[in-house]
Computed example of a mutant assay.
Amino acid sequence: MKFAITSRGDSNSTSYVYRIKEYLIDFNLTYDEENPDIVISIGGDGTLLCAFHRYSSRLDKTAFVGIHTGHLGFYADWVPEEIEKLVIAIAKTPFQVVEYPLLEVIIRYKNDAKESKYLALNESAVKCSEGTLVMDVDIGGQHFERFRGDGLCMSTPSGSTAYNKALGGAIIHPAISAIQLAEIASINNRVFRTIGSPLILPAHHTCLLKAVSDNNFYITIDHLNVLHKDVKSIQYRVSEQRIRFARFRPFPFWKRVHDSFISSE
Rank of each mutant, 00 (worst) to 15 (best):
G46M: 04
L181R: 10
I195M: 15
I187K: 04
G44R: 11
G151E: 04
V212G: 07
V97L: 05
F52E: 01
L133F: 00
N122L: 00
F95C: 11
K61N: 01
K21A: 06
D138P: 01
V137A: 09
R193Q: 10
T132M: 15
Q142N: 12
E130L: 03
S7Q: 08
G168A: 07
E22H: 13
Y163H: 14
L49V: 13
A211P: 06
N12Q: 10
I221E: 08
T156Q: 00
I20R: 13
M154A: 15
Q235E: 15
E183A: 07
R108G: 06
K110Q: 11
S186N: 05
S239D: 10
V65Y: 11
Y23E: 14
L209Q: 02
V79T: 14
H173G: 04
T161M: 14
F248A: 13
Q241K: 14
E115N: 05
N189I: 00
A113L: 12
S263C: 14
T206R: 13
I42A: 11
Y163Q: 11
L29N: 04
V17G: 10
D230E: 15
D214C: 04
P101G: 00
G169Y: 10
K2Q: 09
V257L: 09
S186D: 03
V126T: 06
I25D: 01
I42R: 02
E130V: 01
I262S: 07
E84M: 12
I107R: 08
S160W: 10
R108D: 09
Y236C: 01
D26Y: 02
H258T: 06
Y118L: 01
L72S: 10
S7G: 12
V231Q: 07
I88D: 14
E123M: 12
L209K: 02
G141A: 07
F245P: 05
S186M: 03
D259V: 03
R242D: 01
R249H: 13
I171W: 03
V226W: 02
W78G: 05
N188L: 10
A4C: 12
P250R: 09
S233H: 03
L119A: 07
R190E: 05
E81H: 02
I5V: 11
L119D: 06
V105Y: 04
E265T: 13
C50I: 00
L59Q: 07
I172Y: 00
C50S: 12
I172H: 00
C50R: 10
A4V: 11
M154F: 13
H258Y: 15
I5T: 04
I83Q: 01
N28W: 06
D10H: 03
R19K: 14
G141N: 12
F245W: 02
E22P: 04
S158E: 04
S15D: 03
L48T: 10
P174F: 01
S197H: 12
I67Y: 00
I5N: 08
G9V: 08
A89F: 05
E115F: 03
C153F: 04
S158V: 14
V98Q: 15
P252F: 13
I219T: 10
I243T: 04
Y218D: 00
Y100T: 06
A89M: 09
N111P: 06
